[in-house]
């Protein structure tokens, strides 16, 4: 019988499936769910006797997750040595443009966020960028972003080995079609209808006739998550680990 699971665990499983085959996964600041997904990917790969991906967490203190600093992180991504990364946005639009700067006319905007950080570079050079946002609403998923921190696609001739592959929200998984510059609904999470996704999404997207339901995390994944991954994620994200898994750092 399938065990019950938390909403966070479902999202971790969804992101983890998108990371298959990655050799080096980088995780940005304030990204505990993507970070847990990367560590679950590593645990799964290790289990089948493979070599799990290297996981780097920007800003982490522990030697295991540290990079040699920001310059190293960006240089290594520029060479193609980072396979997967995660980005988010205060606004994300239907062409996968992301806005981390603010709402209204720049620069004196009516809402101002922190800034674009590494997005305007990493979105171009990391082949598998997964967009992740814990709020699925028309406020966030807009027809057109007010400020393009980083564009979802680039015209021919612009160096762009990287870009978005998917958008994961609490309601569903969208995949991004680079050629058509559009999202397609790949699965809706258990209990979520297509109508609800449409109601709460401000941009147009494609949907097949019969949208499958997201596969819940299997028991084996949940065991790994609540064991090894919970201990590991408590290092960079102690508050998250305590809240979701009731876990303390492995070597605290």
């Amino acid at each position: 019988m399938a065990e019950s699971y938390r909403a966070e665990e479902l999202l971790i499983a969804v992101v983890c499936r998108l990371l298959e085959g990655s050799r080096h996964i980088a995780v940005g600041v304030s990204s505990p769910i993507p970070g847990s997904a990367a560590l679950l990917r590593r645990a799964l790969d290790d289990r089948i006797g493979g070599t799990g991906p290297k996981v780097s967490v920007i800003g982490a203190e522990s030697p295991e997750f540290r990079t040699d600093g920001g310059v190293d992180m960006f240089d290594c991504a520029g060479q193609g040595r980072v396979d997967a990364f995660f980005l988010s946005g205060g606004q994300i639009d239907g062409e996968a443009n992301i806005n981390l700067v603010g709402v209204g006319d720049y620069p004196r905007q009516k809402a101002r966020w922190g800034g674009s950080f590494g997005s305007a570079y990493l979105y171009f050079v990391v082949p598998r960028v997964i967009l992740f946002r814990e709020e699925h609403s028309r406020r966030v998923l807009v027809p057109k972003v007010d400020f393009v921190s980083a564009p979802g696609w680039s015209p021919a001739g612009v160096y762009r080995p990287g870009g978005p592959v998917a958008l994961v929200t609490p309601l569903c998984l969208f995949t991004f079609d680079k050629a058509r510059r559009r999202f397609a609904l790949a699965s809706r999470h258990p209990g979520v209808t297509l109508e609800r996704v449409r109601d709460e999404t401000g941009f147009d997207f494609d949907a097949p006739g019969n949208v499958p339901e997201t596969i819940p995390p299997q028991n084996e994944w949940l065991a790994l998550l609540r064991g090894r991954v919970a201990r590991e994620i408590a290092d960079p994200y102690p508050k998250f680990a305590a809240r979701v898994f009731g876990a303390a750092p492995a070597a605290a």
């Binding site: 520029g78 700067v101 720049y106 674009s116 305007a120 570079y121 990493l122 979105y123 171009f124 050079v125 400020f147 393009v148 921190s149 980083a150 564009p151 680039s154 015209p155 612009v158 160096y159």
Partner: peptide, 10 residues
Amino acid sequence: PLRGLIGSDI
């Protein structure tokens, strides 16, 4: 020189 940025509002 730096990769990226092209097409951004930055």
